Computed example of a mutant assay.
Amino acid sequence: MSITARQLIQWKQQGRKIVALTAWDYITGRLLDAAGVDLILVGDTLAIALGYETTLPVTLEEMIHHAKAVRRGVKRALIVLDLPFLSYQESVQQAMHSAGRALKEAGAQAVKIEGGHPATVETVARLVQAGIPVMGHIGLTPQSIHQLGLKQQGKTPTDEQKLMDEAIALEKAGAFSIVLEHIPSDLAARITQELTIPTIGIGAGSECDGQVLVTSDLLGLSERQPPFAKVYVNLSEAIAQAVQDYAAEVREHKFP
């Protein structure tokens, strides 16, 4: 049976940690699901797979195309689709249209929206009222790279309070979960304790209700590793070695 957004909230109450990773294709989605991952984020980190420098160029069409592939490989995990830059910021109507396509066309079960300012909170509330589960995302928000950069957020008392207020507002708006990215671990712990919905950390310490990583970072496939990622296996080296071995055997008339 598929995992639901409501189930994640129950797991927080039970103290069960939530395991989340990203996927952009059928093969990865199938493997992550079979391995027991709880939540699969079809993230706008798709930019990595498409060779973009940032997440900003990724389009809704590209997100839906890749989410469809992930959907075909996933039987159990909750699939959340990132709404990419400028697919929801213009108006509530635009956000409703984009989120509706994520569920209707891509088969996602929820969407993720970055930011916690009042306009975003209103958008979250309207989407939830329409029956669309929404995951929030505060702290380091990559779609705001030109405004915030890629540095850790929430380091001053003022910024700490701002993030706490945003998290509370997103929960009140109906978000079922919030990603906390690249913020101090003590602040993440306080937010986690304050909320009744689960927090999913990425570079936010161990006290969050769950953790998410970009799968290419975990597998050692990314060109640049963020400081908070952990490489569990270096597939870049393994793939390069396998290809070199194959090439050598072809050239030496050993394969086939």
Rank of each mutant, 00 (worst) to 15 (best):
R6W: 10
L8W: 06
Q14C: 10
I27F: 14
R30M: 15
D33S: 13
L39E: 01
I40N: 07
V42N: 10
L46P: 04
E53D: 15
L60T: 02
E61M: 02
E61V: 04
I64M: 05
A67F: 05
A67Y: 02
V70R: 01
V70T: 06
R72W: 02
R72V: 05
V80S: 11
L83E: 10
L83Y: 08
E90F: 07
E90M: 08
S91T: 12
A95M: 00
M96R: 11
H97K: 04
I113Y: 07
G115A: 08
A125S: 13
A125K: 11
A130P: 04
I145H: 03
H146P: 11
H146A: 12
Q147F: 07
L148Y: 08
L150T: 10
K155Y: 01
T156Q: 04
T156C: 07
P157M: 04
E160S: 09
E160N: 11
L163W: 01
D165T: 10
I168K: 12
A169E: 05
A169N: 03
L180Y: 10
L187W: 03
G201C: 15
I202G: 07
I202D: 02
G205Y: 12
E207S: 15
C208F: 09
V212E: 07
V212Y: 07
V214S: 06
S216V: 09
P227E: 05
A229S: 08
A229E: 06
V231G: 11
Y232I: 02
Y232R: 00
Y232D: 13
N234G: 11
L235Y: 14
L235I: 04
S236D: 12
E237Q: 14
Q241W: 04
D245Y: 02
E249P: 06
V250P: 11
H253L: 09
K254W: 14
F255D: 09
